[in-house]
Structure formats: structure tokens, C-alpha cells
Design a binder for these strands. Structure first.
Lengths: 230, 230
DNA sequence: ACTTGTTAGATTGTCGACAATCTGATTGTC
DNA sequence: GACAATCAGATTGTCGACAATCTAACAAGT
């Protein structure tokens, strides 16, 4: 009996690949909020027919990063300051819940993975790769949800993450300047390694991470001066 | 200037109607967990082509009540006891959050709507209409989420609700006996009308509503004796 | 008996074409 | 000029057919 573990075979449908392509384009800000997705144009660019493309778009609509109006079109969601605020406040609650659930399950493997993801953030920061920085930071924060052993929670968090990633990407894209040099995750990681669960939860609830305030200000500013994409 | 409020025009795409039909069939237990959805058969029954049907199925997959395996088929999700437990524990957290957010926004309109939905539950109970009873009970509980003024929370709760409704429907279907005659929502409604927010939150967190324990036991029993649908 | 290769049937995935609907410009009327 | 009716173009929604893939049954070899 061989004990080798195989990972699931890759999805080989065009639909799955289209979903991945579109999601990436949206989350990195290549497709701007409010922008309309022309089915014919995209299907020609991707060299696929409209059927799998439309199915992929349906998925992303349900995922919450596209919105569809019958006979009018499918659009990238518009980011309002309220949306960001809503997502962020709920995210805090979920973080707190996740910490409570995973706390007892922490072990060496968890700590190792925590360090690994933390290192990835630091690496991306050194590289000045903003997109990757956002991606890795969210992956770092996602660890507690993965370890909370609650599939519904994890799924919910991933949905939230999609939007947050999109928001941050837009924000970073707007102010082309340098990214936060300081590592704001040190405290977070240290608390997760420590023995005080309440402290970790308090940190999750109170600490404004990832330049959230700045992000909100940016979003509010956008709303004051609406551009083409609305 | 006329002040009449118009509700949004009904979705006139086949896709939307198919989604509604399928969702209803799943949530009421007409389609059993694990059951495969044959596209050709369903499209013929509904007198539509497979294209809108497939798009509808993609939406329900993202909604979490269907699951899809490429080239194998799309199936109604299987209900495990852990899923129920996960959904329920997260639901409690969301309830608590929702109560906090909507507490200050309560007004006469809220109380009226609360009573209206409570009455609907009682009516369904009198009618011995179990399906409707589940539906109305969840609508009653959904009110706090609708009033919390957080779109992401509401969306998340609705996703959760879908599954819970499915679980309860299956449960009710299994034990064909009478439904809970006592109105378990009296306390809940009273607390939401009262002045003690903490008490309402505690109730949401601690009170095992809707025969949850019984539901869990049923699910665990199902897993011990797996049937065709797995 | 067990495994492997083959094949037919059924089902899902994808395509190209047509129908329904929307949008914006144009025309005609007052 | 303002406004309604009409129309052409573009775009989305839907359809029927074909291609790719899976499943299960059977045959052949060890």
C-alpha cells in the first residue's frame, strides 16, 4: 500500500479558467469598479464562446464582485465607503470568532505556517510588490479562519476577502507612492503565538490594520468626485 | 412630484425563474441531498434549453446549496452534522453582531414588522404547515439582519439561512409527526422589544432555537446509516 | 478470479446562430 | 426648440447541435 497523497486533479474546464482569469483581473484592479463586461469582446479575447464565459460570470456575480442587470449587462461592483466599512466591521467579528475556535487547536504546524505566511508578507514588502503584498497579508490573516475548523466560516471569510482585496488594490493603485514599510503584522503574529486569547481577540477587534482608515478616506473621496465608472 | 414607491421590476429572464424553482425544490426537500441533477431531464421538464438552466445551477453552486464536479454532474449538497453545527454556531455570532448594530435603529416600524412576522409564524403553526413554519421563523429571525444596515452581513446571513432552511425541512420531513406547538419565539420577540441589549444578545447566543438539538441528532443519525444519497 | 483494454451509451462542456431587449440617433410633429 | 415615434445597431438571453469526457459493461489476457 503506497501512502503517497495526491492532490485533486486540476479543473480542466474552460469555465474554471475563465473564472480565475476574471477574478484576478477584478481583484488586481485591471477591471475598474463599475466597468461593464462586454461578453462578445471578452469571449473573443479569450478565444472561447460566450457560454462558458457567461457561466463564469454568473459565479462571480454570486461571489459578490460582479453585478448583473438583465438585458443591460454585467458590471464590476461599485465600491462605496459604506461597503468597505460594512465588510471591515463584519470581518472583525469573524476574526474574533475564528480566534476563539482555533485557539486550542494551535500546534507547531500552525506556528510554522504562521511564520511562513508572515515571511511572505515581509518578502513582498521588501520587493515593493504591492499587489502581492495585499495578497500575502490577506493570506496571513486567513490562517486563523482555516484553522478554526468551520467550513461555513472559512467560506464566508473568503467571500469577504475577495472584496477587501479589491478595495486595497484600488487604493494602492490610486496612490502610486510607496507601501507601508513598517511591518504592522508583528504584534498580530506575536499575539497569536502567545497565551492570551482575549488579548488576541481584542487586537483583532480594535487594531485598524492595513491602513484601513486611509482606505476609507480614499473611498469617501471617490464618492465625492464620481468618475466615468458609475 | 408623486411619492409612490415602486418595487423593482420582476426579473424576466428564464434564468431567474429557474433559479427560484430549483432553490425552492432544494430548500423544501423535494430534491434530496446528494441527488444528481440531470440537465437534459430538468431542461425538458421546464421546457427551457440547457443554457439558462446551467447558468442557474452555477448560481446555486456559488450559493452553496449545490456542488459541481466537472464532467460528472451537479448535486444537491450533502448535509453533515458538522455542517449544521458550523452553520449554527456562526449564525449565533452573526445574530449577536446584528443585534448590536440594529439596536439603536429600532423604531415603531421595526416593532410592527416584528409583530407581523411573529404572527406569520404563529399562523403557520396553527395551520400545521411545517414548510411555511420554517420559512416564516427564519424570516422572523432575519429581521434583525435586515435592520442592522450592513449589506455584507445581510448577504452572509441569507446564505446561511438557505442551508438552515434546507436542514430543517429535511428534518421535518423525516419525522412526520406534529410540529412544536409551543411558540418558542415569545421570549425572543419580547427581548427585542425590551431595553436590555445584552440580554437579547445573550438569548441569541445561548438559546437553542428551533429544536436545533433534535436536528443535530437527526443529522448524526443519518450519517451513521448512510442512504443512497451519498 | 483478477486485472487490463475496449467500446457503446449517456451526460456534461462548448460552440455558433438566432431571438429578445436595450440604447441612442433620427425623423417628424407641434 | 421640445417632444414623441420610429428605427438601426449593439448587446444580452436562449436555443439546438456537436465535441469532450465519464461510466459501466464486456472481452481478453494472465
Amino acid at each position: 500500500m503506497v501512502k503517497t497523497e495526491f492532490s485533486p486533479i486540476a479543473d480542466t474546464t474552460r469555465r474554471a479558467e475563465i473564472v480565475a482569469l476574471l477574478r484576478r483581473a477584478i481583484l488586481t484592479g485591471q477591471l475598474e469598479p463599475g466597468q461593464k463586461l462586454n461578453e462578445l469582446r471578452i469571449s473573443e479575447q479569450m478565444r472561447v464562446s460566450r457560454a462558458p464565459l457567461r457561466e463564469a460570470m454568473r459565479e462571480l456575480v454570486q461571489e459578490g464582485i460582479l453585478t448583473s442587470i438583465p438585458y443591460a449587462g454585467t458590471f464590476v461592483i461599485n465600491v462605496t465607503a459604506k461597503d468597505i466599512d460594512d465588510a471591515y466591521s463584519l470581518n472583525k467579528v469573524l476574526d474574533e470568532f475564528a480566534i476563539e475556535r482555533m485557539w486550542k487547536q494551535r500546534d507547531q504546524r500552525f506556528f510554522d505556517e504562521l511564520d511562513r505566511r508572515h515571511d511572505a508578507v515581509k518578502q513582498a514588502t521588501r520587493d515593493r510588490d504591492t499587489t502581492r503584498q495585499i495578497e500575502t497579508a490577506l493570506q496571513l490573516h486567513g490562517l486563523i479562519h482555516e484553522w478554526a475548523d468551520n467550513s461555513v466560516l472559512l467560506e464566508t471569510w473568503q467571500r469577504l476577502t475577495s472584496r477587501l482585496q479589491m478595495y486595497f488594490a484600488l487604493h494602492q493603485q490610486a496612490r502610486r507612492e510607496a507601501v507601508p514599510a513598517e511591518d504592522v503584522h508583528e504584534t498580530y503574529v506575536a499575539l497569536l503565538k502567545g497565551g492570551d486569547m482575549r488579548a488576541a481577540q481584542r487586537h483583532a477587534r480594535e487594531h485598524i490594520d492595513l491602513d484601513f482608515e486611509e482606505l476609507l478616506a480614499y473611498a469617501r473621496d471617490l464618492e465625492r468626485r464620481p468618475s466615468k465608472g458609475s
